[in-house]
């Protein structure tokens, strides 16, 4: 077993419940590498919702909340306000984050609360058997869209950037080094950080959407269908933009505002006002 894996993962719950070739493990390892780089294991807490990707933090040797479907963000906001000293990571999937918890995402982003959301996008509801998710591309045949999906997919990064999130990035599992760097940057950034990771789901998405079951072929495809924006370049059509999309340090953070207000009113934290 890998040295870092041994340090951060509960051995007794291995092997993980992910299918062979699943990208969630790659994201897990990138997160571990980022923790190691920052050296902040004791300051961290993780929150997750329901779904394949929400199982990622459940293997970590640290404080973890595995909460209701789509409600990871409200739980995390509560935890952040109760313990402003903790750095909080949220692992969530595309259905958990954009469909069931979509409204929570918009409001957390507009508050600019100091959380790091890692949205693992595999284009499908994997755990329940391959239903259409909000990120499923148009025309994809899934269990619940047998004639091809009619809906336009929701772009999580644009949504968060528009709602007011201050750090927005997108990477794929084929870019593990950049992903690790982005997670470290997201944790260090004070404000709402949103990192979307395109992962391969060889079992459900590979079967239904992409038509290839090999995880390596899917990762190669992700490399092909993405581009990194550089100043003044022509935007290729039909490709997904990856890299750091937004980084804004000018907005005020929500926890600071709340604590400042409490101080003005002479209320100690944890004391009731009455």
């Amino acid at each position: 077993m890998n040295e870092l894996y041994e340090k951060y993962i509960k051995k007794e719950s291995l092997p993980t419940l992910f299918c062979p070739g699943c990208g969630n493990g790659i994201v897990q390892f990138a997160a571990i590498k980022a923790f190691e780089k920052l050296g902040i294991k004791d300051e961290l807490a993780c929150v997750s919702g329901i779904g394949c990707s929400s199982w990622i933090p459940c293997y970590f040797k640290m404080d973890v909340m595995h909460t209701m479907h789509g409600r990871a963000l409200p739980f995390a906001e509560g935890l952040k306000l109760a313990r402003p000293d903790k750095k909080i990571l949220i692992f969530t999937g595309d259905g958990d984050c954009l469909a069931i918890g979509g409204n929570h995402l918009i409001h957390a982003a507009s508050r600019n609360i100091d959380l790091t959301v890692i949205e693992i996008n595999n284009y499908i509801y994997g755990m329940t058997g391959g239903q259409k998710s909000p990120a499923t591309p148009e025309g994809a045949v899934t269990k619940t869209s047998p004639f091809g999906s009619y809906d336009e997919p929701i772009d999580g990064c644009s949504l968060v950037a528009a709602a007011g999130g201050t750090y927005v990035a997108r990477w794929t599992t084929a870019h593990p080094l950049q992903l690790e760097k982005a997670i470290a940057e997201g944790i260090e950034h004070k404000g709402f950080s949103f990192i979307e990771v395109l992962t391969q789901c060889p079992v459900q998405a590979g079967n239904n959407i992409f038509g290839e079951k090999s995880p390596v072929a899917m990762m190669a495809r992700y490399k092909e269908m993405t581009y990194i924006y550089k100043e003044g370049m022509e935007i290729p059509e039909g490709k997904v933009r990856i890299g750091r999309i937004k980084h804004d340090t000018s907005r005020k953070e929500y926890t600071d505002k709340v604590l400042q207000k409490l101080e003005e009113k002479n209320i100690k934290k944890g004391q009731s006002n009455g």
């Binding site: 092997p15 993980t16 070739g21 493990g25 790659i26």
Partner: peptide, 8 residues
């Protein structure tokens, strides 16, 4: 090491 999904 980085791309092994199971840290094996």
């Amino acid at each position: 090491e980085r791309l092994c999904p199971d840290g094996a």
